[in-house]
Design a protein around this nucleic acid. Structure first.
Lengths: 226, 226
DNA sequence: CATGGTATTTACACTAAGTGCAAGTTTGCA
DNA sequence: TGCAAACTTGCACTTAGTGTAAATACCATG
């Protein structure tokens, strides 16, 4: 039988991917329906049409299933990063790659996860892990670009800072706009990402509480919370 | 009986602190003796002479008891940071505060934890949480210094980057020197911390794959590379 | 120093996480 | 077609983490 789509993946691999996705989807659906911490692995497994044991074949913990949203969100940016020309500065590439995150399709699940897990400690831990994971991947990508003899401290400090700044931009954006994905809101996100990379590139030299600062950030002292 | 030490703490508070420390110590001792993941909360409680339930009154998880080592390590640096003059640049204060970490007394438990948990992902998660926790505290400290009207993005991006760079320096140092706490090794750690802050302050402008790579310099000027 | 109020510890019971194992089912391949 | 490898499942088991109520330790009174 010839596969209708000439994909390089075997049926086994397709099935696995589908199962994994089904589990992640079921987890997110339950998060939506019941709120954080109000459902079990068994519930997720049932929702995904799979046994409890199989759940654990795919994800080590319940939170990991939810954090897979963050994973694919960040993976998205990483792919963009690798597409950038090798002679571009790392920070410029990072800026460009992060722009991909301000896309409705990419940001939607992430923003939803953000809004649903604001106050959950356990879940936050898995999110941290996802960001950290991404940092490792950025380190690899940058090393690949700059050569394997690049100073290890430079690599790690740079990658860590880029991710921290990306995270900061996301956090500030979300606190200002909430799960709003309108073009206006996403434009603010883009601007925050650009600003964050700018701060990093300038060594945080600009005292940001000075009057200058003609950014699109007149939203920052916004008194409204949502 | 008058208390021999005129401390302002009640016996209750002293007992609590002692119990907490006993639990953390017992956890670290077990980690040393049996290795990561080879002992239970019950073991720790027994080692600390306390009931299992009491353990959970002090720490939410087993890993948290071990990560308390990281907590107090970072707390140490934070205290130094707050001691710095308010008109100093944040990066300079951070550099000075991080120097406190290259002290045998402070670094010893941390280095040991590092070497004992290299390959444990559950434990790594709690360490991540400790660093993240510290980031929040740095944000507060910096906001306190620069005024509450400081741009939130600036605060978060700066604090996150500083912590990332500190972490990078620790990681690189540990990978190079292992748990060695000799003056020579600690001097390397200090230099890595200085270099990391220098990179941050210069916007990562220095192409690090240049020959000499002894960039203890180029800290002060901030070339607007963006 | 007795006495009562409050904080802390403990035992017990319970739900749910996570893992090892062996048997069943599906897929890939010759 | 049939076999080997990968995947799924059920079952049993240990441990994490939490609620509750009784017991114990601390602290302030008179």
């Amino acid at each position: 039988m010839t596969s209708p789509i000439p994909t390089g993946l075997s049926r086994r691999e397709l099935n696995k991917a589908a199962t994994r996705q089904a589990i992640a989807d079921a987890a997110l659906a339950l998060l939506r329906a019941k709120g954080a911490g109000a459902f079990t692995v068994e519930d997720i497994a049932e929702g995904a049409g799979v046994s409890r044991r199989t759940f654990f074949n795919y994800f080590p913990t319940l939170e990991a299933a939810l954090a897979s949203v963050v994973d694919s969100f960040l993976e998205h940016a990483l792919i963009e990063f690798r597409k950038r020309p090798a002679d571009e500065s790392v920070l410029e590439s990072a800026r460009a790659a992060l722009m991909a995150l301000a896309d409705p399709m990419a940001a939607a699940p992430m923003a939803e996860l953000f809004s649903l897990t604001q106050d959950n400690r356990v879940l936050a831990r898995s999110e941290l892990e996802a960001w950290d994971n991404c940092t490792s991947k950025v380190i690899d990508a940058v090393r690949e670009r700059l050569g394997s003899d690049t100073d290890e401290l430079y690599l790690r400090a740079l990658a860590g800072s880029v991710i921290s700044c990306g995270k900061a931009a996301m956090t500030v954006w979300f606190e200002a706009c909430g799960p709003d994905l309108s073009p206006a809101s996403l434009s603010i996100l883009r601007q925050q990402l650009i600003n964050a990379m700018g701060l990093l590139g300038s060594g945080f030299a600009t005292p940001a509480n000075l009057p200058g600062s003609h950014h699109a950030t007149s939203t920052s002292p916004s008194p409204e919370r949502f």
